[in-house]
Amino acid sequence: MTQHRIYTTSVASVYKHYVAKAERKGRTKAEVDEVILWLTGYSAAELEGRLAAMTDFETFFAQAPALNPARSEIKGVVCGVRVEEVADPLMREIRYLDKLIDELAKGRPMTKILRLPAAAPAS
């Protein structure tokens, strides 16, 4: 079986498109970074290093310090495919990231994008 081309594509080459998409919709590079850091567990400095090193997606996710366990709550369709039904683990991680960027660009609040628990109502 041949490996999908995205696996060997550098994250940096796609990252600029993530940022452009978010900025077109009034969001920021800092929010894109926050989403990526939440998903992968990288620090801001580690992310910058990975981007500068032109790390490919396969290595980027394989070496992620702490993939967020809440990522399994990411549901929906991206590129015509339900992310929760993607069988290949690496492709699923990439689709999770794509879905988070889509949610960001659609104006969804960061608390919902990052699957943070709802704040308890004040008594």
Rank of each mutant, 00 (worst) to 15 (best):
2 T>W: 05
3 Q>V: 15
4 H>E: 13
5 R>N: 13
5 R>T: 15
6 I>E: 08
7 Y>P: 00
7 Y>S: 09
8 T>R: 07
11 V>T: 09
13 S>T: 15
14 V>L: 13
15 Y>A: 05
17 H>Y: 14
18 Y>Q: 07
19 V>T: 05
20 A>I: 11
26 G>A: 15
26 G>W: 12
27 R>C: 06
30 A>N: 14
31 E>K: 10
32 V>N: 00
34 E>K: 11
35 V>R: 00
40 T>L: 03
42 Y>I: 07
45 A>I: 00
45 A>W: 00
48 E>R: 02
48 E>P: 00
50 R>Y: 06
53 A>Q: 12
54 M>G: 06
55 T>A: 11
60 F>E: 00
60 F>Q: 01
60 F>I: 12
61 F>M: 05
63 Q>L: 14
64 A>R: 04
64 A>C: 11
65 P>E: 03
67 L>Y: 02
69 P>L: 12
71 R>C: 10
72 S>M: 05
72 S>T: 12
73 E>I: 07
74 I>M: 06
80 G>N: 13
82 R>N: 09
82 R>W: 07
84 E>T: 05
88 D>S: 10
89 P>F: 03
90 L>P: 00
91 M>Y: 08
93 E>T: 02
94 I>R: 00
94 I>S: 00
98 D>Y: 10
101 I>N: 02
105 A>M: 10
106 K>P: 01
107 G>D: 04
109 P>G: 02
110 M>I: 13
111 T>N: 11
112 K>M: 07
113 I>Q: 01
113 I>L: 07
113 I>R: 00
114 L>K: 08
114 L>E: 07
117 P>I: 02
122 A>W: 05
122 A>R: 08
